[in-house]
Nucleic acid binder design. Structure first.
Length: 461
RNA sequence: UCCCCAGUAGCUCAGUCGGCAGAGCAGAUGGCUGUUAACCAUCGGGUCCGCGGUUCAAGUCCGUGCUGGGGAGCCA
């Protein structure tokens, strides 16, 4: 096959060239008297390239029948455009129709609604907006690895299938090879002894417990992979399958943890602002007019750091008529978090030192005996984007916390072992990758930043 | 799972007080034009989400189910 040139390279080039081959999909075509304008997109960038197809082409009659969505291969000269609106265009010497799309192609030249596009999730990356989302998604993944690489973190692949219940992180999906249509029960329960792993197992809800073991050996580590929650959540920021970034640092306290979370969010925002300019501009213009203001508020100044007790005070003094009353000791509601980050401070807020009763067993008990060294990073429009803590490294305290939470110490024997052999203070957090993408693009539904989202009742693609 | 809202042409949506089913875009045909959400004219296009009820008459009112969306909880 002929070597093709990507459209982003052509549009960014400084010199014309005699022979150029472009392959892609037709976004629109317009006829002029003696030639046809064909706009082609190959996904390499937001912009299309305009092709001039003259009526002297052998197959000009066929060219005039090219429909939106068709795949074509163009050979031609790259020249400065005679028209306004683009710098370069291609004067075709050959237009090969790779595949002619019939006129029931679901995507039209006009703008479609997000809900409709969700029903054609297999085709929506061919639109401007979704193409941009998934290019940014890819760049963001790269930026995360690069960020950690530069800071000396190691990338750990934690298991997807697990027998552990990472307490407090939600319902889990079962993994089994037992015949569900012919299940023999033992004492009213499935006979997991004869299941694949000889143990009840499920999809992971967090790689944290596993990755802690590697922090306590390789030092600074992270996982970045899919995570599964079987909660029947029906909101614009929950899905059953999502990606999470979980750094974990040895010899690191809560303050260092907050430092990393803040540095990371600021670095990633800056990276995308600098490296995805065209795509970001689309979102700032058409999706969320306040996007750049929001991102500025993330990037330009330090985050607010606020103990839970002070957050409660601020909320109480706000004189706001919240739907849910402010009660010390109770978890903050969505509306409370949004008030803090969107109205009171108008920038990201880190709330820390939560009451131990509302947080997970592995979070380190503070000296007051009442709070744990937990922290949540709240950002405008999304709410919680990071949840993390300093981990309880003292064996007796950890064992006590496991017991009072009603969990079985036996299942956590290896986790507890790490506190018996060379236990050290360490910290980490979970960053919602898809939520970060929402923050960066202003897209308000998490289903629209995931290629094929999984939600209750929805697994068509 | 709970609360609220919506479902009408391929898409986006209008449809008044219950009285003949509509527009723009898309598609087809013709015209015009270095055009760029191209433009102009003509034409085709409907299970008004399903089921049941009220009524002389239901897209419209009532009940119910399904699907989608917004909010809440769970959290990333």
């Amino acid at each position: 096959m002929t070597q093709r040139q990507k459209i982003d390279q052509i549009l960014n080039s400084t010199e014309s060239r005699d022979v150029t081959v472009v392959k892609g999909w037709v976004r629109t075509r317009r006829d002029s008297k003696t030639f046809s304008f064909i706009e082609i997109n190959d996904g390499s960038c937001l912009k299309n390239i305009q092709v001039i197809a003259d009526n002297t082409l052998d197959n000009y009659e066929d060219v005039k029948k090219i429909t939106t969505g068709s795949a074509v291969s163009i050979t031609g000269q790259q020249v400065a455009s005679k028209g306004k609106g683009q710098r370069w265009e291609l004067v075709a010497t050959a237009v090969d129709i790779v595949h002619l799309t019939p006129d029931d192609f679901p995507l039209q030249k006009k703008r479609h609604g997000d809900e409709y596009l969700r029903s054609v999730a297999h085709l929506r990356p061919r639109t401007n907006k979704y193409g941009a989302i998934f290019r940014i998604r890819s760049e963001l993944s790269y930026a995360i690895h690069r960020f950690f690489k530069e800071k000396g973190f190691r990338y750990i692949h934690t298991p997807i299938i697990t027998a552990l219940d990472c307490e407090g992180a939600g319902e889990q999906f079962c993994v089994t090879t037992l015949p569900l249509d012919n299940l023999t029960l033992k004492d009213g329960k499935p006979d997991y002894l004869h299941d694949f792993f000889s143990k009840e197992s499920s999809l992971t809800v967090s790689g944290q417990l596993n990755v802690e073991m590697f922090a306590l050996s390789l030092g600074d580590v992270y996982t970045f992979g899919p995570t599964f929650r079987a909660e029947n959540s029906n909101t614009s920021r929950h899905v059953a399958e999502f990606w999470m970034v979980e750094p974990e640092m040895a010899f690191c306290d809560l303050e260092g943890n907050m430092d990393l979370g803040e540095e990371m969010l600021q670095h990633l925002c800056n990276y995308i602002l600098n490296n995805c300019k065209d795509d970001i501009e689309l979102f700032a213009r058409f999706v969320d007019k306040s996007l750049l203001t929001t991102l500025e508020s993330v990037v330009t100044s330090p985050f607010v750091r606020l103990p839970y007790s002070e957050a409660i005070d601020i909320l109480k003094k706000s004189n706001r008529n919240f739907e849910f009353e402010i009660v010390a000791g109770r978890d903050l509601q969505s509306e409370h978090e949004r008030y803090l980050t969107e109205e009171h401070f108008k920038k990201p807020v880190i709330v820390y030192d939560y009451p131990k009763e509302i947080k997970a067993f592995y979070m380190r008990l503070n000296d007051d005996g009442k709070t744990v060294a937990a922290m949540d990073v709240l950002v405008p429009k999304i709410g919680e984007i990071i949840g993390g803590s300093q981990r309880e490294e003292r064996l007796p305290v950890l064992e006590q916390r496991i017991s009072t939470t009603g969990l079985s110490r036996k299942n956590y024997w290896w986790y507890l072992d790490s506190r018996r052999f060379g236990s050290v203070p360490h910290s980490g957090f979970g960053l919602g990758f898809d939520r970060l993408l929402m923050l960066l693009t202003g897209v308000s539904n998490i289903r629209d930043v995931i290629p094929f989202p999984r939600t209750p009742n929805s697994i068509e693609f």
